[in-house]
């Protein structure tokens, strides 16, 4: 009996100190006007003022909007991953090597990857625009330096980085589909496309659902890539909630206000998860 507490104790203690207490602390701080440098006696409770201010804060609203636009990268990446997974799992030699190739960006340090792409996307010297100019394009986009192109460029990179994860999980999902289903369908004269639509896709819905949930949650929390790649710029065109929260908390030193952003982030994640769990009843086949 007592042994049980001994075994799970360290984990419980860790969860308490490093997650539960900070979360309660964060929740409390979101109703205050406070900067941590001034000391605890300067905490001032201001009710919902922070939240009212958030909805008039252009940078925050822009960041929140960018978060939702960026979610588009998740389904696009999943479609590409599914196509590649189908080809790799059945139609190539040495499938293992391909999994390694597509997983490489995922394994690489985000900082290094972001720095490399910064150079590749360089508007005047970068090899990407060098290539486009060589193809005869007179005014290639300025990518990360152009407010209209920066966000799509970031999304492109996200797809490139995360492709390997979806690919590997789809590949595992494909392996679980019994081969005799395809054999029976072939005997019945079903085309490859018909087989894909009526066997592969429906049987993969649990995998697709899982990837969508984790992908959207991961995407919504993105920070490191933005911080290194663009610092939210140009003109806040790539700022996201976590980035804005980081700036507010650690650069502007507005602890209370930053905590209210955290609460919005948390509510958004809860809402997204809840929506997906409700939605899965209608399209996931278990």
């Amino acid at each position: 009996m007592r042994m049980g507490y001994l075994f799970v104790g360290p984990m419980l203690l860790g969860v308490m100190i490093f997650t539960l207490i900070p979360m309660i602390f964060s929740f409390t701080l979101s109703f205050t006007k406070w900067s941590f440098v001034t000391g605890f006696d300067k905490i001032k409770f201001i009710g919902l003022d922070n939240f009212r201010a958030l909805f008039q804060d252009d940078v925050f609203l822009k960041s929140l909007g960018n978060n939702f636009i960026m979610l588009l990268a998740v389904p696009i990446g999943m479609v590409i991953a599914l196509l590649l997974a189908v080809v790799i799992s059945n139609h190539v030699y040495a499938p293992g090597a391909f999994k390694v190739i597509y997983f490489m960006p995922q394994i690489s340090s985000v900082v290094a990857v972001a720095v490399v792409w910064q150079v590749l996307f360089h508007p005047s010297y970068g090899p990407v625009n060098g290539f486009l100019s060589a193809l005869g394009m007179d005014n290639p986009p300025k990518w990360l330096a152009d407010p209209n192109f920066a966000l799509p460029s970031v999304m492109l990179l996200m797809i490139w980085i995360d492709l390997g994860v979806s690919l590997i999980i789809y590949n595992a999902g494909l392996k679980n589909i019994p081969a005799d289903l395809y054999e029976a369908a072939t005997i019945d004269g079903a085309s490859k496309w018909a087989q894909f639509r009526s066997i592969t896709l429906p049987l993969l819905t649990p995998t697709t659902f899982f990837l969508l949930v984790t992908g959207i949650i991961g995407n919504f929390k993105s920070f490191a890539l933005i911080k290194v790649l663009t610092d939210g710029g140009p003109a806040h065109s790539t700022s996201v909630v976590v980035y804005d929260m980081y700036q507010t908390a650690f650069v502007d030193l507005q602890t209370g206000y930053a905590s209210s952003m955290v609460m919005i982030l948390f509510l958004c994640l809860l809402a997204i998860t809840a929506l997906q769990w409700i939605g899965q009843k209608f399209w996931v086949n278990y």
Partner: peptide
């Protein structure tokens, strides 16, 4: 190991998985 409150404690651990690490950075 069977001990009292095991399922409740596990549910608590499971629930904290929903809290993103970004939400606890400041505190």
């Amino acid at each position: 190991i069977h001990f009292r409150g095991r399922n409740t404690l596990f549910a608590i651990v499971l629930a904290t998985y929903m809290i993103p690490s970004e939400a606890t950075l400041v505190p």
